[in-house]
Design a protein around this nucleic acid. Structure first.
Lengths: 208, 208
DNA sequence: TCAGACATGTAAGTCGTTACATGATTCA
DNA sequence: TGAATCATGTAACGACTTACATGTCTGA
């Protein structure tokens, strides 16, 4: 029939940390999961309502005291159970749609110089991403070593609802998740170097 | 409104090598692009018809001489132009949906031992994939060095319609594409090691 | 003969993106 | 006062997956 409703579990997992709104969900996904996951409002709000319909979460208006209207979703016991079941179920292999690789593969009939141009653009984007990740890595590493979070991190920790006991564990999870992103980007950059060298040799052979 | 019709260009790119059927398209995608792309029949056949409707390809019955019924699609001049335009257009960043990373990130509230189990399963799957890739790598490397393709490869080269002049270039593209997959899998495995070590230290700290 | 590969297609349902629509609050 | 951020949602349109449906040919 159809796919696996992973959006539901992703949101359920975030709610298992702390009750939050659709807006909070979006922000946390963007900040914490962006290099291997993404969700958008068009998915999030309907999914939250569905979670409620399925009894996995409850919806409460948090509109009091002259504040903005805001709906906070809280995971139920049934929701926690469903989340645990999902965690323990077999995990699908990573799904990747890499347009650069697709273009590179398909453009084998074109001059090598075109492929090199393609790869160099990609290389630039990956280097920029790496620089950002390296910054976050430094911030997290410092927090882990000094056992004290910076202002920058404090907001994130508040959003996740982490209490002080589990803070270090949560930080380490963030750190390791980021390390995964760094490993992947470095792998892509290593490939760029290798491919450019290989195609450069081609160019030298055919053009001299 | 909606997404970018990359399936169309992926198929167009394959047709730019050689006229082929929907079945051929599926096989080539599975063999050559599987670690960074996938298509299925439910996409392929409608897309091929759409390509024809848009004047980017033509459809011919290849049903003669007691053979099976078979429809072969041929790229048109307009199709080639559209393909070139796509190649030269800005390339989207890779899109990844990594369920393992998602689970790992979300399960930070669970005991470290659960995370370790999760990662070890993933590690096993990645090791198996690496072994397969290593085999293909050896086959391709040999073909490149000896300038002679094995039987195993010959079928692939026939499918792609490569003539003898561009054969070496085509082989090198296959090789580099595969190298990308190997870089990525190695990065994932390196992360697994790192994460298990880190979580192992946690376990030692909290359980002794 | 019979399994496996060849070959084409549809139906149903979900996923996912983008644009649109609307409005409140905060802070410089 | 006006830009940025907070906040919620819908509509339209593809994209994507899976199961189903059907039939042929080849080679062990």
């Amino acid at each position: 029939m159809a796919a696996k409703k992973k959006t539901q579990f992703a949101i359920l997992g975030l709610l298992s940390w702390k009750p939050m709104s659709g807006y909070d969900v979006k922000k946390l996904v963007d900040v914490g999961l962006s290099h291997f996951w993404n969700e958008n409002y068009g998915q999030i709000y309907p999914t939250l309502d569905r979670l409620v319909a399925d009894g996995l979460a409850t919806k409460k208006s948090d509109h009091a005291s002259g504040k903005r209207r805001r709906f906070v979703y809280t995971i139920t016991r049934k929701g926690k159970k469903a989340f645990r079941t999902w965690i323990e179920a077999p995990t699908d292999a990573p799904i990747v749609r890499n347009e650069l690789q697709l273009k590179f593969f398909l453009s084998s009939g074109l001059p090598a110089i075109d492929s090199v141009r393609l790869i160099k653009q990609h290389q630039g984007a990956q280097r920029a991403a790496l620089a950002e990740y390296r910054h976050s890595e430094a911030v997290l590493r410092e927090a882990l070593q000094n056992d004290a979070v910076s202002d920058e991190l404090d907001e994130l920790m508040t959003m996740t609802g982490t209490d002080s006991q589990s803070r270090k564990k949560q930080l380490n999870t963030f750190y390791l998740t980021l390390r995964h992103g760094i490993h992947i980007i470095e792998a892509r950059l290593a490939w760029c170097e290798e491919a450019i060298t290989s195609l450069g040799a081609d160019l030298a052979n055919t053009e001299t």
